[in-house]
């Protein structure tokens, strides 16, 4: 059995066609992760008691349980519980009407929140204590210190890591295929169900994932250059 180039091209086209689904999964999870993760990171850096503990436990849970289990757990509870709740509320919507993309996006978001909370915490702490003190000493409030002094310095530090998270999300979004959500990978695989040419389908999917992640890496380099202008070479 040879490598069927023409079918490979068919699978490649299918993979590319469903790439927007993969990008939607990864980017929505990234966005949710940044917003909620920043909240959790700030809670820990400023030692807000309850929220800081909550954030710590959350990170341990999400990092300790494989994402595919989280996804399957969500999927099972969604399909089982949703209909019961919907019935109780006299809604006509049923779990089978829900696009599985949302379940996958939710699972990825839970994962990305934990990751981003950790990396932002590191970035916030990497801005030295002196910067906080100087800000307080000229009369800035905690909020002003965070938004005017600390974040502008922490964001460039965290950018390469955020891009890594995005790459991780793009890769992990592929597990959406275990709940039969049609994304980049599943698009390519569905094309192969008639002729069992799975190798071609997987090669096609791999190349598209690789291409996506290489572009994210490139973007990361560009962004980093632009955002660290203030750290120009010292001229004494």
């Amino acid at each position: 059995m040879g490598f069927d180039i023409s079918f490979f091209l068919v699978a490649l086209r299918e993979a590319i066609k469903y790439t927007p689904v993969t990008l939607f999964l990864a980017l929505s999870a990234l966005l949710v992760g940044i917003v909620v993760g920043l909240g959790l990171a700030v809670a820990r850096v400023f030692q807000l008691r309850v929220l800081a503990t909550l954030s710590r436990v959350y990170v341990v849970l999400i990092k300790g349980i494989p994402l595919v289990i989280i996804l399957l757990l969500l999927y099972m509870t969604m399909t089982r519980m949703f209909d019961d709740i919907a019935k109780a509320l006299h809604l006509t919507v049923r779990s089978k009407d829900i696009d599985l993309v949302w379940v996958a996006a939710l699972a990825l978001s839970l994962w990305s929140i934990a990751n981003i909370a950790e990396l932002l915490r590191g970035a916030l702490l990497s801005v030295g204590k002196g910067q906080y003190e100087a800000a307080y000493s000229v009369g800035l409030s905690r909020r002003q210190t965070l938004f005017r002094i600390i974040l502008p310095q922490a964001v460039p530090v965290s950018l390469p890591m955020l891009c890594n998270t995005l790459i991780g999300l793009i890769k992990w979004s592929s597990i959406a295929f275990v709940i039969s959500c049609v994304d980049l990978l599943n698009g390519a695989l569905i094309a192969a169900t008639d002729n069992y040419r799975f190798l071609e389908a997987y090669v096609a999917a791999a190349l598209v994932y690789w291409g996506l992640n290489l572009s994210v890496e490139q973007m990361s380099h560009q962004l980093e250059k632009r955002l660290t202008r203030y750290r120009k070479e010292a001229i004494h």
């Binding site: 592929s174 997987y202 791999a206 994932y209 290489l214």
Partner: peptide, 22 residues
């Protein structure tokens, strides 16, 4: 290294499973 870091592990599993025997 770039390929291994840039593609999902699920895809790698099946690539090896189908590709290495081939």
């Amino acid at each position: 290294i770039s390929f291994m870091r840039g593609t999902p592990i699920v895809v790698q599993l099946f690539l090896v499973f189908y590709g290495v025997p081939w």
